[in-house]
């Protein structure tokens, strides 16, 4: 009954406001922080292809539990993706509360942004647009990873990039812009690293934010191109699994021993 009254009046029987808005605000920030930092780690992981196919492959197998199991288990990757997917959905639900919900809200914000030309006001709009686009782009990618964890690898990812590169190009820009602006905004929102002079700190944070954005965009584009090249070189054998050099050497050595 008390929930009914609170839902109807907007305050509890004893006249108190709900604590839920505070929790939602906290959850939005916490999930955003996790996803932002996760994406840094994710980008470093996928970019290992720039070092070598073998290195990327060994990391992939490590994530499939190669340290603990004789046979790698892609299901472990699915499990991790499922956790990230849930956090992603929660964050999207929290973020939705802030998006413009009517034409007038959209119109007044756009006009204000164009008139005022204020950095943080414009950056929020980028965040809103990229956030909205990730409802679809992010979900599609996470669903792919959830259902095809075994396909992650130098050849599998290369093959995927060959067919889906426009999708991943859009996702790259959406993630990097949304994530870096989001982390910057988190610092402002909660007063992290504020120090004695918050204005000076913000200037520094903004510089760091753009440096990080550019770094990850360059790294992401280079990585995307690397996978694309692998996909093109490998297009005749699309679908074939990658075999690391050591494995090939072992097979070769075994064959030569047999021949000898």
């Amino acid at each position: 009954m008390s929930n009914l009254i609170e839902g109807f009046l907007g305050k509890s029987v004893d006249g108190k406001k709900s604590r839920l808005p505070a929790k939602l605000d906290y959850i939005q920030s916490a999930t955003g922080l996790f996803l932002g930092l996760f994406m840094w780690g994710h980008m470093f992981f996928v970019s290992t292809i720039l070092i070598s196919k073998d290195f990327m492959y060994s990391l992939t197998k490590f994530m499939e539990g190669s340290m603990f199991f004789e046979e790698p288990k892609p299901g472990l990757v699915s499990l991790a993706v499922a956790v990230v997917f849930i956090i992603f959905i929660v964050h999207a639900a929290m973020g939705m509360r802030k998006l413009p919900a009517s034409f007038r809200q959209w119109q007044v914000y756009r006009t204000h942004m164009k008139m005022m030309k204020h950095d943080e006001t414009s950056m929020w709009f980028i965040q809103a647009v990229t956030g909205f686009s990730m409802f679809f782009l992010g979900s599609a990618h996470l669903f792919l990873m959830l259902t095809q964890p075994g396909s992650i690898g130098p050849y599998g990812s290369g093959d995927r990039m060959l067919t889906l590169w426009p999708f991943y190009l859009m996702l790259l820009f959406a993630v990097e812009l949304h994530g870096s602006i989001g982390l910057y905004r988190l610092c402002i929102k909660w007063g992290w690293f504020e120090g004695e002079n918050s204005k000076e700190t913000r200037k520094t944070l903004k510089k760091v934010k753009w440096t990080i954005t550019i770094f990850f965009l360059v790294l992401g584009l280079t990585t995307l191109l690397a996978y694309l090249k692998i996909g093109m070189d490998h297009s005749d054998n699309a679908g074939e699994k990658y075999h690391p050099t050591t494995q090939i050497e072992k097979i070769y050595n075994a064959n030569t021993e047999v021949t000898a």
């Binding site: 939602l24 802030k98 204020h118």
Partner: peptide, 14 residues
Amino acid sequence: GDDNGIFGCMSLVA
């Protein structure tokens, strides 16, 4: 303590 108060602020800092 609601979305029209402190939790509504989107930290646009304008």
